[in-house]
């Protein structure tokens, strides 16, 4: 007897959007599993927001499809949005309303009598839910919008640059909330161009360039696949690194070398055995360096 496998909660297949002749995104294939936090990375204009707006049915795909919890995001948009929490980029809310009034409106639309997480979220983020939105700063509006997005404890979170405008404390609080959501089995899909936050909480990242997905992998694996930075202090003659492939010299000065090496670190260690080493540091690149490499086009 075969057991039917559950589809991933969030899935895109050859998802494409053109604006006239201009490419928004092209042939995105991506799936996010339950309990996974995926960072959707790319600079401004790379297609992150276009993708997210397709996921909530605001934009119609030119071709391909996207499914959330097994449902087509455009054709079954309402039932999809019943189960997700969507935070738009550059949030706009009705200025004359308070956060609590907007929350009540959202709950009435969702046919819920109360929001299980509202008070806890408002407290953690410091969201001023009882003040009129038009009186709030951008960061405060973002906090209110985050409470509205997360209060009903959705199964799938689709967030467009959620930390935008937040102060460092609120950023930290939000990342903790998203991290915990992933641990509770929620699917978290969030876009960002701030790599450190993706590095802190993401199980996986997907990097977008000019509308195309150029890589998707676990953060650790992306780091592993990239170069390692080696700082070496030695006495006596310098080590001969000529025979080693994938070496990129960064800095060399009187008994000190800094270089990058790709591939098997064992060959480097073997080569350094004959050297009088005073100090050796081998560090992995940050996600930011990995990201920049992909954007410079010299990814391996």
């Amino acid at each position: 007897m075969s057991i039917a496998q559950e589809p991933p909660p969030l899935e895109m297949r050859r998802l494409t959007k053109y604006y006239g002749s201009h490419v928004g995104v092209q042939e995105l294939d991506l799936a996010v599993n339950a309990g996974e936090v995926l960072g959707f990375l790319g600079p401004n204009g790379s297609g992150k927001t276009t993708t997210i707006r397709m996921l909530v049915g605001l934009l119609k795909p030119t071709s391909g499809e996207a499914r959330v919890l097994g449902r087509d995001v455009f054709l079954e948009s309402v039932s999809v949005r019943r189960r997700i929490g969507y935070l738009p980029g550059d949030v706009a809310l009705y200025g004359e309303r308070t956060g609590n009034e907007l929350l009540r409106l959202a709950l009435r639309v969702r046919r819920m009598s109360e929001a299980p997480l509202a008070a806890e979220l408002a407290d953690a983020l410091g969201a001023p839910m009882d003040r009129r939105v038009k009186k709030l700063s951008r960061g405060m509006r973002q906090k209110v919008a985050l409470v509205l997005t997360l209060a009903h404890d959705p199964d799938v979170l689709v967030l467009d640059e959620p930390t935008s405008g937040l102060d460092p404390l609120a950023q930290r609080a939000l990342l903790d909330i998203l991290d915990r959501a992933g641990q509770r089995g929620k699917t978290v899909f969030f876009s960002s161009h701030i790599l450190s936050e993706a590095e802190q909480i993401c199980d996986r990242v997907a990097i977008l360039r000019e509308g195309r997905l150029i890589v998707q992998d676990k953060v650790e694996r992306l780091r592993e696949q990239k170069y390692k930075e080696v700082m070496l202090a030695y006495s006596g003659p310098p080590p001969d690194l000529e025979g080693l492939d994938g070496i990129q010299m960064v800095w060399k000065h009187e008994g000190r070398l800094t270089f990058r090496v790709r591939g098997d670190i064992g060959r480097l260690m073997a080569l350094l055995q004959g050297c009088a080493i005073e100090d050796l540091t081998i560090s992995e690149p940050s996600l930011e360096e990995v990201f920049l490499d992909y954007y410079r086009g010299d990814a391996t």
Binding site: L58, V91, A92, V109, A145
Partner: peptide, 14 residues
Amino acid sequence: EQRTIDFILGLPVS
């Protein structure tokens, strides 16, 4: 124009 539609249509509203 003001993008409040994103808030409304982010809810389960057709």
